[in-house]
């Protein structure tokens, strides 16, 4: 018996738009995943705490505010500190190419610009989760 893949979608940063994050969350639901959505202005502390309690396979961060180079490394540290070693981290938002590469070197599994195909994201998640579960 397997439970569906479980994903936490969190919106970080101070801007008040979460339409994009919700589109992703609903899209992944349609792809058969259980998607915990926690709303606006999530801090790394909150994200990690929720990820632990919900025991998610994936943390998906939506970020538009431009502060990704502070928030994401901070989040990655919290993830490590708390021993969430098996969780997959994906980031969506407006992120310059060089930054994306840096983030991936730091441990982010994938970065998606706005408008990426749902199918592509879901396929990546399925593959990454099955590799980590093994």
């Amino acid at each position: 018996m397997e439970r569906p893949i479980k994903v936490l979608i969190a919106k970080v940063g101070l801007d008040g738009h979460d339409r994009g994050a919700k589109v992703i969350a609903r899209g992944l639901k349609d792809q058969g995943m259980e998607v915990v959505y926690t709303g606006l202005r999530q801090t790394p502390e909150k994200i990690v705490r929720t990820a632990i309690q919900e025991d998610v396979d994936v943390i998906g961060i939506s970020i538009l505010s431009g502060s990704h180079m502070e928030l994401i490394p901070n989040l990655l540290n919290k993830i490590k500190e708390n021993g969430l070693s098996n969780v997959i981290v994906i980031v969506g938002g407006i992120i310059p190419k060089e930054d994306a590469q840096t983030l991936i070197k730091m441990g982010v599994d994938a970065v998606y610009p706005p408008g990426s195909s749902m199918k592509e994201i879901a396929d990546f998640i399925r593959k990454a989760v099955s590799e980590k579960r093994r």
């Binding site: 569906p4 609903r26 639901k29 792809q31 058969g32 259980e34 998607v35 959505y37 709303g39």
Partner: peptide, 14 residues
Amino acid sequence: SSPISFGSFMGNRI
């Protein structure tokens, strides 16, 4: 849970 995809949008924690 969706009866079609079996996925679920879980928004209660908001």
